[in-house]
Design a binder for these strands. Sequence first.
DNA 1: GCGACAG
DNA 2: ATCTTGTCGC
Length: 228
Amino acid sequence: MTEVRVPADWPASAEAARAEQDRLRPLVDVTGPGPAAPRLVAGLDVAYAESGDRLAAAVVVLETSGLTVVDAAVAVGRAAFGYVPGLFAFRELPALLDALDRLTAAPELLVCDGHGLAHPRRFGLACHLGVLTGLPAVGVGKTPLVGTWDPPAPRRGSWSDLRDGTDTVGRVLRTRDGVKPVFVSVGHRMSLDNATAQVLALSPNFRLPETTRAADRRCREALAGQLG
DNA sequence: GCGACAG
DNA sequence: ATCTTGTCGC
C-alpha cells in the first residue's frame, strides 16, 4: 500500500480534462471480443474518507473458477480532481494505476466501478483505464450517467439496451431476480455481448460482481487502517 | 433558462 | 462517495 501523489502534468481544469478525454478517445478498441473464458479477472474500487478528499484505491484479482481472491494491492492518497460528472476518472485514476502497478498476478480483464462507453463523450473510467493499461476493460455502474432504456424482465440474466441518441452505449442487466439492474458498458477490447456475459458470470449471488465487492471491502478496510 | 449528473 | 434506524422479506 503506497502513498500516491498526483502527477505534475495532471489536468487542473475541466477544460484540460475534457481535452485529454478527446485525445485518448480514438485509442479505445471497440472491436472486441475480449477473453471468452478468462482465468484471472481484476476488480477495482475506491473508498473516500468522511472528511475531505482522502481516499484508498484497491485492485483485487480473482480466479474465475471459484471467485477467490488470489492477489490484491491498495494505494492511499488524495482525490486528484474535483467530482465532476463526466470527469470522474480524473479523481481516482492515479491511485488506481498505482495499485495496478503493484499487482503480482496479471489479470486478463478489468472490471471497473463506473461506466465505459456509456458516457457523454464515450470515454468513461473503464475506457480510460483500458487505454492506459492496454487491457480489456468493462464498466459496471450502479446508476446511469447517460442514456434511456426499457426495464429488463425481472429474471436474472435479462437485459435491455442502454441507448444515447442513436448509439447503443451499454446494457441494463438484471443480475438478481427482481432486484434493481446494473449498467454494463464496454471499456476497451471487449464486445458488449462478452461484457454482459462476464459481468453476469461474476455476479452469481449478489447484484454487484464479486470483483467489485471484493475491491470495495479492501479499500474500505485500508481506509480504516489509515485513519480511524 | 431549468434540471440532470458514474463515484 | 459518505452520513444513517428501522424494517420488510427470504
